[in-house]
Design a protein around this nucleic acid. Structure first.
Length: 336
DNA sequence: ATGATTTGACCACT
DNA sequence: AGTGGTCAAATCAT
């Protein structure tokens, strides 16, 4: 089984990587020709799909506990080029996919780096499609900005254990690092209805506030007076048109300004995000609730929430092995 | 009134 | 003991 799977994985990854490379090249060429953003956006989507596919494969592979396949990409550039903008390669990615050798996966964890584009980045009223509830904020040692903790609003009613942490970058205050821990297993997480006009108006106001916040936020010594460090109300209505601008990017990589910036979530500002993924070693305290979430259920459930072709794709996923019920199938980064 | 956020306290881990 | 993560009462927003 191993060798067959290994070969399949390698082949799939190589093919996907090549596809992505070609898309990048196309984008590069297109970019020099056309000033229009539309093709770029489309390419962005294509690239995003590739990334997600690769993520899924790698994540699953890693979770099989035999993750050596991916660790040392053998051919071409598999892992070395999984960035959306193609401007840099990602060594971080490998790092992020390094498996936790001893601990089995519990919840996938990955980090998105979201850039606020103060120029044009705030016009898009949308979030990541999930409803988050803030449950804490903490000053982190050595970090300028506090870290905010969110959990899925439907944690209780739907046993959805998705969490995320939002940390503003020290170096670049326009960048927020959002660490997702676990993924949504609830149906209600995704709210498909478009924002009402009033909401859009509200969002505009919020965006203005955000801009103001960004300016003010130089030192926050007096926390009593400080606003909530850039956290949006989770009542934010989601738009139905996510636009994936994800990419696997190096820590220091900055995604180019061409991307159409949209909001992705409350407290996870829009656009220009890229994520990293790794096994979530902790969370052993997260009980396996629900008498038997089946992988098939998970997949079908989540496939129904996406229009990605990958939703109907058959992976060589061994259901009893390790696919975490919380796999980010319908995570913002995936299947958009 | 209800639900979300804030924030100090608490807990677990190292 | 220090730190990060979570809890939960108080507060705020709708």
């Amino acid at each position: 089984m191993e060798s067959g799977l290994t070969w399949e994985y390698e082949t799939l990854i190589n093919e996907l990587t090549q596809g992505m490379e070609k898309a990048k090249q196309l984008r590069f060429h297109l970019g020099s020709i056309s000033q229009s953003e539309a093709p770029d956006l489309l390419l962005q989507r294509i690239l995003s799909s590739y990334e997600k596919s690769l993520s899924i494969l790698k994540w699953n592979n890693g979770s099989l506990g035999q993750a050596q396949i991916i660790e040392a990409p053998t051919s071409g550039a598999p892992d070395s080029s999984v960035t959306v903008d193609g401007s840099q390669t990602s060594e971080e990615l490998n790092k992020n996919f390094r498996d936790t050798p001893k601990k089995r996966k519990l919840h996938p964890t990955w980090t998105e780096r979201v850039r606020i584009n103060s120029e044009n980045g705030l016009e898009g009223p949308t979030d990541d499609g999930y409803s988050w509830r803030k449950y804490g904020q903490k000053d982190i040692l050595g970090a300028k900005y506090p870290r905010s903790y969110y959990r899925c609003t439907y944690r209780m009613v739907q046993n959805c254990w998705a969490n995320k942490q939002v940390q503003r970058s020290d170096d670049d205050p326009t960048i927020f690092e959002i660490t997702y821990k676990g993924t949504h297993t609830c149906n209600q997480c995704v709210n498909p209805k478009p924002a009402s006009p009033e909401k859009q108006e509200q969002n505009q106001t919020l965006l203005m506030n955000l801009k103001a916040n960004l300016r003010v936020q130089t030192e926050d010594l007096d926390k009593k007076e400080m606003p909530a460090h850039f956290s949006f109300p989770s009542t934010f209505e989601q738009e139905n048109y996510y636009f994936p601008v994800s990419g696997f990017v190096d820590e220091n990589n900055h995604v180019g300004p061409t991307y159409s910036p949209l909001f992705y979530s409350p407290a996870t500002p829009e656009s220009n995000y890229f994520y990293q993924m790794r096994d979530y070693g902790e969370a052993s305290n997260l009980q396996q609730h629900s008498g038997g979430t089946d992988i098939a259920d998970i997949i079908s459930t989540h496939a129904s929430t996406t229009n990605s072709p990958i939703g109907g794709m058959e992976f060589s996923i061994d259901p009893h092995v390790d696919l975490d019920p919380n796999f980010p199938f319908n995570q913002p980064g995936f299947f958009t």
